[in-house]
Nucleic acid binder design. Structure first.
Lengths: 229, 229
DNA sequence: CCAAAAGTGTTCCGGCTACACCCATGC
DNA sequence: GCATGGGTGTAGCCGGAACACTTTTGG
């Protein structure tokens, strides 16, 4: 078969994006109501096809941008799904990606244009094809990732309270955490900056705001530090 | 674009297999000398193209079988590689898979037929395309996987000694382990069966052989147990 | 009897868990 | 002055790390 790939089969390659957000209460996913057949009118992940000139990461970012208007978002390739008849129209394999966005940052007009809506992960509608399977896998990956890497911050505003951070981990991990132990652990990792400012919306006393210090984190990592919640 | 995928680009999809073995001394990889252009004569992972009627797992198993004659092997999808010019002949994305095999089980005749050879992971030759990158990723994944799942046993004979098991973990993790602590940890997980038999080849005294007890392991997992080395 | 690998326990330390009270403020 | 969420410390326990000597037996 010297230098001859001609008799090989070509297939369509899609990317589907699992877009996570966090609204201080629940972990959410951005889904779109499918505007074309097959399965028109059903809920689905936002997807698109890989183009000849693109790499997978670019295709996934393009899809994400189309729906949210966001760039430079934390995104990770998840898994390749390839059941022969997963898309009834034509053989298509799909690379699932997941993204973590700050739920307040995206462009709401684009949601309307794409008939998109946020759903709590605990109240998902029925999804087309194998998208439910993709989401299951993404949730498992998210749990592992947020436990061992400081990516949870991607789901929060730049400035956040300890309460928000703890609540985020609680909904991702699916368990309640002890307030004192949580703060102790986070603080002794020493990768947050405590600001002078307080958030006054959640209580009379107000609670201090924090920022993730990426430079400090990376410096510590190069000294052998591992983030762990 | 109702029900019309026609204007979308199709691409070739390859699978490349990172085949790990362990020879009591070193972690090894099975590589083939490429018999066709481009890069003919260079070393490469064993690969093949996805067919219309196959899912990715099947394609990867087919490729593995072609080279080793083995079926029912531990294999896991690793990552999708998609640089536009990664294959200079034609746009091809590749799904990398890694497999863990017992190095004594495969059919050596097939290695000759495919110009394949085992290489220690510490002494790899130059590889074509992005295969080096694939291997790096596979090694990282293997370290994580063997630390949290009992998949290391896939690289050993059915009956093995504690010494072999420890050595295996040492080469995968890249660090020396304390013999007493290691055995204590393994034994208290209580997922191995100690046989009456001894392996007499490694010492005058002989060392007891063990088997992994998969049923017991799975039962313990369903009770909340987690394997951890 | 000696060489070479197998086998085995204890102590110490650090990190995780469990747990309850005072503080600041707006109303 | 009281209701609401914010913030903080300690004691006990468990698991991991360090560490050395005895056993077996073929030559």
């Amino acid at each position: 078969m010297d230098n001859n790939y001609n008799q090989e089969d070509k297939v369509l390659v899609a990317v589907d994006c699992i877009i996570f957000g966090f609204d201080e209460e629940d972990l959410k996913l951005l889904l779109v109501k499918r505007g074309f057949e097959p399965e028109k009118g059903k809920w689905s992940l936002m997807g698109g096809f890989l183009r000849q000139s693109e790499i997978l990461d670019e295709a996934a970012n393009r899809v994400l941008f189309t729906l949210t208007g966001l760039n430079d978002v934390y995104m990770e390739q998840l898994y390749g799904f390839s059941k022969v008849d997963r898309d009834p129209v034509e053989r298509t394999i799909s690379m699932a990606y997941y993204a973590l966005i700050n739920i307040n940052d995206h462009n709401p007009k684009l949601l309307d244009e794409n008939s998109a809506q946020w759903f709590s992960v605990s109240e998902l509608p029925e999804l087309i094809f194998d998208h439910g399977e993709m989401i299951d896998k993404a949730l498992r990956r998210l749990r592992r990732r947020t436990s061992t890497n400081p990516v949870g911050f991607e789901l929060l505003p730049k400035k956040f309270t300890m309460r928000q951070l703890q609540k985020l981990y609680e909904v991702i991990l699916g368990e309640e955490l002890d307030k004192r132990n949580f703060q102790k652990k986070i603080k002794q990792m020493d990768v947050l900056v405590k600001l002078k400012e307080k958030d006054m919306t959640s209580s009379r006393k107000g609670s201090f705001l924090y920022e993730f210090d990426k430079e400090k984190y990376e410096e510590k990592v190069s000294d052998g530090f591992t983030f762990r919640v």
